[in-house]
Design a protein around this nucleic acid. Structure first.
Lengths: 223, 223
DNA sequence: TAAATATTTTAGGCAAATCTAAAATATTTA
DNA sequence: TAAATATTTTAGATTTGCCTAAAATATTTA
């Protein structure tokens, strides 16, 4: 399935991402994500169903077919490689790259993306810490946990953030926390659920529960 | 004028390129270049006219407005910068990059293209030797002449080729001629209009009139 | 210059992607 | 479980971009 419009690709990608978090995905969910109306989504679901990338039964629900998932992973791969390029080579901040990558991810050349991958040194994770699927669609799964679920005394590396807002970036920059920063949990305060942490740069300070909820960590493994 | 679709941009770019060579541009010319029909072109001319990028009078003709020319130069800038990127950073051959750049040239971010320009070292000419407009749309004009018009004894640098066909590339590769190669005219044979030339690598050989017609040179200046 | 030819435009239609309003179906709750 | 509510789908329009066939205008040539 290769003859897909940019719009069709965007629907497939959106459904893919929604499926990752929610167990079931509704017409309304898709409409909300894409800033469109439920009726438009229904139209598209029917088109994607005939194109075999979706299993769809009216009024019953829908999910990506294997083919559809492959398409989605291809788009995600392109998106994340371009994000990596923008941050590593063009000095963009990680909070600036999403919109640009949304456009670049629809460039069709297969050869281009393989050459880009090589040029970038075959990165496994994008600037937000999200894994980059390989050319076969395989994703290197990281056992990620939320910072609030880390036991006292343990150390882990920040591997992803729960939001990509400028506000969060501002706070993290100020606290000197980035993807790759090692964090050790020193104390948990039950009064306000704040956490005292120590980073690999030696600083010790407390962070709010809100901030901790936005941080995901891995015990070992990747950058 | 910023809210232009990819299709509209392609029409503007095509009209721009046709205007560069032909003194007048016809509806049929545009249709031929874009592989479409004259009626479709007329539809688009009317749209572009209301969008102020075109001066159009029915049955009389049309040309880009100042605004339209600015748009065209912006697209050409993006196209050539991306071609430069593909050849210099991703190891593509100059005959492979056109189709990919046709897609990349429609990515909208202004900041992206300025950062890309810096990343590439602000190149002034693309891999085919064509000038890259600056961010204000200014083109560095090279006084280019055709190789057949060079007088005997003079030396100049290959700055552009008249075609981007794979066949031409094959021949040039075999003869060791590339953008930047210095060529001195040694002799002209009136029998078949072939030329004996010497290149900066010291080789001396003859080339056909057909090949000479495909080569453009500059006396001094740029790479 | 008038007729023949070529070019351009209009008229009317089609497909993709979207919308609003109304109808059909599912789910919730009293 | 039946009524109320929420969700999803259909029906019918709209816009963009393209098409064919026919009409209008320009250009060429006899």
């Amino acid at each position: 399935m290769d003859n897909l419009s940019t719009t069709e690709e965007n629907y497939i990608k959106t459904i893919y991402h929604l499926q990752q978090t929610d167990s079931t995905v509704s017409t309304n969910d898709v409409a909300a994500k894409l800033n469109t109306k439920a009726a438009s989504v229904t139209d598209m679901l029917k088109r994607l169903n005939t194109k075999q990338v979706l299993n769809y039964e009216k009024y019953k629900g829908f999910s990506l077919s294997n083919e559809g998932e492959k398409v989605a992973l291809g788009i995600v791969r392109k998106h994340r490689l371009w994000e990596y390029f923008l941050v590593e080579k063009l000095q963009f901040g990680w909070d600036e790259v999403h919109a640009i990558a949304e456009e670049l991810e629809h460039i069709t050349s297969k050869l281009l993306i393989e050459r880009l991958d090589n040029f970038l040194g075959n990165p496994k994770f994008d600037p937000h810490g999200d894994p980059i699927p390989d050319s076969n669609g395989k994703i290197q799964v990281q056992p990620q946990i939320n910072l609030v679920d880390m036991p006292i005394g343990e150390t882990a590396k920040v591997s992803a953030v729960g939001s990509q807002s400028t506000e969060l970036l501002e706070l993290l920059t100020h606290k000197n926390i980035a993807i790759g920063t090692s964090i050790t949990i020193k104390k948990k305060f039950s009064f306000d659920n704040s956490l005292e942490i120590e980073t690999n740069s030696g600083q010790t300070f407390t962070i709010s529960r809100e901030l901790a909820l936005a941080l995901f960590v891995t015990k070992k493994s990747q950058p």
